[in-house]
Simulated scan of single mutants.
Amino acid sequence: MILLFDIGNTNTHVGLANARRIVRHTDIPTNGWRHGAARHALTRFVGSTRVEGAVICSVVPHVTPLVKKATRSLWKLTALELTPKTLRGVGIDYPRPQTIGPDRLANAVAARARFGAPVVVVDFGTAVTFDVVNARGDYVGGVIAPGLAAMTDYLHEKTALLPRIRIREVKSAIGKSTEHAMLVGAVTGYRGLVRELIGELRRELKARRLPVVATGGYAKLIAANLPEIEAVEPLLTLEGLRLTWLAQV
């Protein structure tokens, strides 16, 4: 089995995979790597499974060496880190490749493998990111916008009367309470943002067909009434890591 680590700001998404698929996965709080909690959770997750390799993508640089240290001490493995230099499966046509988030590269690898090129990935995380692979199969850039929860939390934190809300679907576009009005702006308005950006990307790429795949925490909610999104793939980043490992061996 191969260990997959997608190290994010809030959680580290960990998977176990074989040559065909991701077998199981879990989330471990990223701040737990600073003490023993994350390592303990990792050993419980892996159990007695034989681990033969590990691959990492990380947007939290100070945590990366802690995860590498754990794989060395627990399984005597040197983890492969996904970077522009270790990337396989897509090319890069971007001015400063080292500034691309490794999770975005993993998403691009998995999306191209499944949907071909061109393709767009929309990742609904702390920020929402759009990542574009052109018809030649090159990662060419994308878009970054505030995440859904970040926007609503900001409204709560910067105003006296707006509450913190639980993001969910709304049926009416006319808010009948403060919370309802905020949900309309968040969910329905967010779909408008995503739809418009997809349209702009399609026009710029001059693509007659442009598959769009969504991943991340709010992907299922936003994609539910957004026909521009062709598929929702919750494990897209881990799948990109799995494919990256297979391309190296």
Rank of each mutant, 00 (worst) to 15 (best):
T30C: 12
T26M: 10
A127P: 10
A54Q: 10
H25T: 06
W33P: 01
I229S: 07
P61M: 06
A224M: 09
S177H: 06
R166F: 03
D138T: 09
A113S: 13
V51P: 00
G147C: 07
V55R: 07
G32E: 00
N11V: 00
K68I: 07
W245V: 00
T99P: 01
A223K: 02
A19S: 07
K69W: 04
G116Q: 04
V140L: 04
Y154L: 13
G189Q: 09
G15P: 01
N225P: 00
T12P: 04
V184G: 10
V212Y: 07
A41Q: 13
T178S: 04
E239W: 01
H35W: 09
V51A: 01
R114T: 09
V119M: 03
P95W: 11
S48D: 14
W245R: 10
I229G: 04
A19Q: 08
G36D: 12
P84W: 03
M182A: 08
A19R: 11
E228Q: 12
L82Q: 08
V140G: 11
F130D: 07
R21F: 00
I144T: 12
H25F: 06
S73V: 08
T152G: 04
L162P: 02
A110H: 09
A145V: 15
P84G: 11
A224T: 14
A17D: 08
T188M: 15
V90A: 03
V143M: 08
L221K: 14
P118M: 07
T83R: 10
P61R: 07
P234N: 04
T43P: 00
A110T: 09
T64P: 00
G217F: 10
A70C: 15
W33V: 08
L42E: 01
A106N: 03
A207P: 11
I22D: 01
S172H: 13
L148C: 01
L193Y: 05
Y139W: 06
N11L: 05
V249W: 06
F130A: 05
R72W: 14
M182P: 04
V187G: 15
A110F: 05
I28T: 05
T129M: 06
L105G: 06
G47P: 06
K69T: 15
K220Q: 15
I92S: 12
P234M: 03
A111K: 08
G36L: 03
G192E: 08
R44F: 01
L42T: 03
G199D: 05
G15Q: 03
T159R: 02
L235F: 03
A135I: 07
L74F: 05
T78C: 02
H62G: 00
A127F: 10
